[in-house]
Nucleic acid binder design. Structure first.
Length: 474
RNA sequence: GCCCCCAUAGCUCAGUUGGAAGAGCACCUGACUCUUAAUCAGGGUGUCCCAGGUUCGAGCCCUGGUGGGGGUACCA
C-alpha cells in the first residue's frame, strides 16, 4: 500500500486487523463450505452456513445486526452477546463494513418480519482495510468508477446488471449461431498485415521471429480464408483493436461479432442480423420495444431500408451518382460536416447519415458507393452491395456481399493504396481468393454498441469493464 | 490533435466580494439485547489535483501542467 494513502480510516482498520491476529485468529481465511447461497438462504427456514461481505452494521450494545451480501443476494444476520459469549462477541466488534465473513445459524423472522440468520458461530474470511463508498449515494466519480471498477461493482446494482446482461447477450448470440450451424472459430489477433477494415493498427514486435506484428483491426480476411478452406458458416466473437480516437462510442479495444455464410449475400445478412437482434432483445429485454437515451426504439419488422443515394439526396441534396469525390466532399462540407483531410471519408459519410437518420428505430442504409468498400461485391460500376445498420442514431452493423473475384480484389486494393499511401496488400489473401472462394455474405456487429443500446448506456465505457484510461499516478 | 467543462474529508457534495476549510453518510469515544439510511451524547479525520504567480492575505484571481468528462477530428 502506498504510504500517502494510509489515512486515519485505514490505520483504524489495520489496528483492528492486528487485534484479530493477537487473539490468535487468522483474518484471511481459506475454503469455506457453504450450505446455501444468500439468495437461497432467504427462502429456507432451517440452519444454514453462508458467507458474504458485510454491507451494513447496526450495533446496539449487546446485539448487532448486519447485512451480508454474496453474489446471489443479501440477508440480515443477528449477532448477540448471549449466543456467542463475550470473547466471540467482542471479536465480531472488530469487523467492519466490507469484511467477508462466514456465519452459521438458524434462519428466523424478526419482529418486523425480516428473514434473519441467528448467528451461532462465525468465521472471519477477509478483513478489508479500506472503507467502501457511501451506502446511500454510492460511487459517482466517473474516474474512480472506471479505474477501480471493483468499487463500482460493489456499490452499484445497476452496473452489476449491465455486465450480467453483457455476458448473457454474448452467450445467447453464440447459442443462436451454433443452433444455425455456424462454427465458432478463432483467428489471429497478432497479424503481420493488418487488414479487413480502414483503421490505424497498434504495432508490436515478436522477439524470436524478429518480426513486427499488428493487433488486428478486424478478423475479416482470415475468416474469408476459412470460406476458401471449405467451412461454409463461420463466426468469431472477440476483440479487435484500433489505434485511434477514444470517445463515447470508441474504445481502443472493442468486441465485434463477424459472421460469414457461403452462398449467401448481403440481403441474407440483413435477415440474419434482424433475427439475431430481435432474438437477443426478446430474450434479454422481454420484447421488441425499449428506450435508449429517452428515444423510443421499436424493433418490429420490417426494418426500414433506404439506399445511401436516397439518403444523401433527400437529406443533403447530394447526388452521389452525379458527383465525383471532389464535389461530393465539397457538398458534405457545406452540409456542416467537418473534414480533416482533403477527401470525403467513409466516416464523414457515416456521421452525415447519423445526423440524417433522426428516426431512431432500425434503419438499413444500403448500396454504398463502391469506392468506400474495397471488400464488397459491386452491384454495378458505382454501387457496392453493402449495408450499414443504424439503431438509435448509432452505427451498429456493417455487411457486404463479399467480393470473391481475386483480380478485381487486387485492383480494388490498389485503388485504396493510392488513397492511404503505405497500405500493404495481403498477398496471401489474394492467393486464397485465387483458389476460389464461394460467394458469401459477411456481417460485422459491434457487440459493445449493441450492449450500450440494450442497457441504455450513453457511453461505451459503461459497458466495458476496464475501459482504456491514462495511467494513474499512485 | 483542437475546443469547452470539471477536480474541496474515505464517499456524496456546499463553500458568499479574496479575509479562521464546512454538511450528510462513513469513521472514532461513550450509552444501548429485534435494528434496518437504528437512535442518543461527544469528536473533523483535509497536500482544497500539482507547480508557479498576483496579493498584507488565495479553495476562490492569473499562468503552466496532470487526470477525468463532453464535443469535434481520425475511425467502427
Amino acid at each position: 500500500m502506498h504510504m500517502a494513502e494510509v489515512n486515519e480510516l485505514v490505520k483504524e482498520r489495520r489496528s483492528k486487523l492486528e487485534g484479530i491476529r493477537e487473539s490468535g485468529i487468522k483474518p484471511y481465511g481459506g475454503r469455506f463450505q457453504r450450505s446455501h447461497c444468500l439468495g437461497e438462504a432467504v427462502e429456507v427456514k432451517a440452519k444454514v452456513k453462508v458467507a458474504g461481505r458485510i454491507m451494513a452494521l447496526r450495533r446496539h450494545g449487546k446485539t448487532t445486526f448486519a447485512d451480508l451480501r454474496d453474489g446471489s443476494g443479501q440477508i440480515q444476520i443477528y449477532i448477540s452477546f448471549d449466543l456467542l459469549g463475550e470473547e466471540r462477541y467482542n471479536l465480531f466488534g472488530k469487523l467492519d463494513i466490507g469484511d467477508f465473513v462466514g456465519v452459521e445459524g438458524e434462519v428466523f423472522k424478526t419482529k418486523t418480519g425480516e428473514r434473519t440468520i441467528k448467528v451461532e458461530d462465525f468465521t472471519i474470511l477477509s478483513k478489508s482495510l479500506r472503507p467502501l463508498p457511501e451506502k446511500w449515494h454510492g460511487l459517482k466519480d466517473v474516474e474512480i468508477r472506471y479505474r477501480q471498477r471493483y468499487l463500482d461493482l460493489i456499490a452499484s446494482e445497476e452496473v452489476r446488471k449491465i455486465f450480467n446482461l453483457r455476458s448473457s447477450l454474448i452467450k445467447l448470440a453464440r447459442q443462436w449461431l451454433d443452433e444455425r450451424g455456424f462454427l465458432e472459430v478463432e483467428t489471429p489477433m497478432l497479424q503481420p498485415i493488418p487488414g479487413g477494415a480502414a483503421g490505424k493498427p497498434f504495432k508490436t514486435h515478436q522477439d524470436t521471429l524478429e518480426m513486427d506484428l499488428y493487433l488486428r483491426i478486424a478478423p475479416e480476411l482470415y475468416l474469408k480464408r476459412l470460406l476458401v478452406g471449405g467451412f461454409e458458416k463461420v463466426y468469431e466473437i472477440n476483440r479487435s483493436f484500433r489505434n485511434e480516437g477514444i470517445s463515447t462510442r470508441h474504445n481502443p479495444e472493442f468486441t465485434m461479432l463477424e459472421v460469414y455464410q457461403a452462398y449467401a449475400d448481403y440481403q441474407d445478412m440483413m435477415k440474419l442480423v434482424e433475427e439475431l437482434i430481435i432474438h437477443l432483445a426478446e430474450s434479454l429485454l422481454g420484447g421488441k420495444k425499449f428506450t435508449y437515451q429517452g428515444k423510443q426504439i421499436d424493433l418490429t419488422r420490417p426494418w426500414r431500408q433506404i439506399t445511401f443515394h436516397e439518403t444523401m439526396k433527400e437529406m443533403h441534396g447530394v447526388d452521389i451518382e452525379e458527383e465525383d469525390i471532389e464535389s461530393l466532399t465539397e457538398k458534405i462540407r457545406s452540409a456542416g460536416v467537418k473534414l480533416e483531410g482533403e477527401k470525403v471519408t467513409r466516416s464523414a459519410l457515416i456521421r452525415l447519415l447519423e445526423k440524417s437518420l433522426s428516426s431512431t428505430s432500425p434503419t438499413f442504409v444500403i448500396d454504398y458507393p463502391a469506392f468506400l468498400c474495397p471488400l464488397a461485391k459491386k452491384k454495378d460500376d458505382e454501387i457496392a452491395e453493402r449495408f450499414e445498420l443504424f439503431i438509435g442514431g448509432c452505427e451498429l452493423a456493417n455487411a457486404y456481399s463479399e467480393l470473391n473475384d481475386p483480380i478485381e480484389q487486387r485492383d480494388r486494393f490498389e485503388e485504396q493504396k493510392g488513397d492511404e499511401g503505405e497500405k500493404i496488400i495481403d498477398e496471401d489473401f489474394i492467393r486464397a481468393l485465387e483458389y476460389g472462394m464461394p460467394p458469401a455474405g459477411g456481417l460485422g456487429l459491434g457487440i459493445d454498441r449493441l450492449i450500450m443500446l440494450f442497457t441504455d448506456s450513453p457511453s461505451i465505457r459503461e459497458v466495458i469493464l476496464f475501459p482504456q484510461l491514462r495511467p494513474e499516478k499512485l
